[in-house]
Every structure is written in C-alpha cells, then in structure tokens.
Amino acid sequence: MERLSTGTEAIQDDVVRWYQDTRDGMAYVPTMIWGTLQTEAYATVILTQVVDFLGVPNDVPAGVAKRMQRQQVLYDGKHHYNVVLGEQALYTNVGGPDVMRGQIERLLRDFDLPSLTLGMLPSTARVDLFPVHGFNIYGDGDRVHVELVSSSVDITERSELDLYGKAFAALSSAASYGDAAKELVRKAHSFWTSTTPEE
C-alpha cells in the first residue's frame, strides 16, 4: 500500500511511463476492463473505490487524468497491445448501467484500432491452464506486473517471465477474436441497455 500512500496520481504516472516504454505489451484482465480502455466515468468509479477501500488521499480527478493520458499509446502509431479480457469483465457492475453501457460502447469503437488486438475469453471457453489472476507484461516481455489487494508485484526473473508468456499463450489461444469477440461485447451492450439503475 506504500506506493499509494500519496494517492492515485503518482502510481498512474509510473504506469504512463511503463506503457510509453513498451512497444509490444500484453495483458490478461479477467474481471474488469483493461485500464487503457477505460472510459473516464469507469476509471473514476474504480479509483474512487481504491481510495475509499485503502483510505489513501483522495486525488481521484488527478489519477483519472493520468489514466486518460496513458491511453495516448493507443493512437500514436508506435505501440501495440495484445489484450485478453474475460467475458466477466463485460458484466462486472462498475458504476451502474449507464457507466457500463458507455464503457461497452467504447470497446466497440476501439476494437479495430491498429494498435490493439483485443480478444474476449468466453466464460465457457476451455483453457489449457488452471484459472489465474490478471497480469500485464511490459517492457517488451522483460517485466510482469500483478495487482494485489494491498500492493503489487513486479516479476523480472526470466524463468517466471517465461511462465507468464506461456500462460498468456494459453489464454489467447482460447479467446475469441474479430466478429466472434464483438458479438460477445454486443450481447453485453444489450444487457446493459435493458438494465435499469436500481432505485
């Protein structure tokens, strides 16, 4: 938790640098939307939850601004990210139907970005790997970052990096891409469109 002791902006600053320094990155995110594809509304809910849960200084607007800044790597023509989202990420209720609907629409808009290979892992997909936590592979394969409840772990040992590469290969092999992936996202959009906010 020490890295968040001053709030969310400083760690978001670090993440911006990690992404800028990574020409080819990979990410597996099973239950939420990958941060670099989050809308401002979705990111605001997530970072507010982090601040409230951990009791760190509330600088959510600054943290969200940095998260939005990191998304520039999707549009600068210098980076590529191979991302696998679990189907559950489309249904984990972050902020209610309006926030989720806007977030799903953002995914549909960005699906065909040249900088992005976006796979959806269906909840019923058979994966040749036991269920694993989410992770990001940075530095063109030289670093794996794992978020925990109270802190994070950075992995740089080559033998462990190779295992994460092997895990990502298994997950991406089981994921759906292209029209099949978009259909899963459209299904989620229909769900959130027909869901009304709780009274």
Rank of each mutant, 00 (worst) to 15 (best):
S123N: 13
V132I: 15
L121V: 08
V146T: 05
N136I: 11
G141K: 09
F130S: 13
P131I: 04
Y138K: 02
P131Q: 05
A125D: 01
P131L: 01
P131W: 02
M120F: 02
G119W: 07
L129V: 09
V146R: 03
R143T: 10
L148K: 08
N136P: 00
P122M: 03
V132C: 11
P131T: 04
G139D: 12
D128I: 00
G119F: 08
V146Y: 00
P131D: 02
M120H: 02
G119L: 04
I137K: 01
Y138Q: 09
I137Q: 01
G141N: 08
P131C: 01
V149G: 00
G139H: 09
G139Q: 11
D140R: 05
G141Y: 05
F130T: 14
H145L: 11
I137R: 01
V127I: 10
I137G: 02
V146C: 06
S151K: 05
R143Q: 12
A125P: 04
I137W: 00
M120Y: 01
R126C: 06
L121I: 10
S123G: 13
V144T: 08
H145T: 12
G141R: 06
L148P: 00
T124K: 14
F130M: 12
D142I: 00
Y138H: 14
S150H: 10
F135L: 03
D142L: 07
S150I: 03
R126Q: 13
D142W: 05
L121P: 10
G119V: 04
V149W: 07
T124V: 11
F130A: 15
F130G: 08
L129F: 09
S151V: 10
D142S: 10
S150T: 12
R143F: 03
G119D: 03
S151C: 09
F130E: 15
V132E: 07
P122Q: 03
G139Y: 08
V127F: 01
L148C: 06
L121N: 09
D128M: 08
H145I: 04
R126K: 14
S150D: 12
D140C: 07
I137C: 00
L121Y: 08
A125C: 00
V144C: 05
G134Y: 04
I137N: 01
V127Y: 07
P131Y: 03
V132R: 07
G139C: 06
L148D: 03
D128F: 08
D140Y: 02
G134E: 06
L148V: 08
D142G: 13
V132F: 01
E147M: 10
S123A: 13
F135S: 05
T124W: 11
H133R: 13
L148N: 13
A125T: 05
V132K: 06
E147S: 11
R126E: 14
S150Y: 09
F135M: 04
S152E: 11
S151D: 15
S152D: 11
L148G: 08
Y138L: 14
V144M: 04
G134W: 04
F130D: 15
G139S: 14
L121S: 09
V127N: 03
V144A: 03
F135P: 03
R143K: 15
V132Y: 02
H133C: 09
V146E: 03
A125N: 01
R126D: 13
N136V: 14
S151N: 15
G141Q: 06
M120E: 00
H133S: 12
S152L: 09
P122I: 03
P131E: 01
G134T: 06
E147F: 06
V132L: 04
S152H: 15
H133A: 13
I137V: 14
V127K: 01
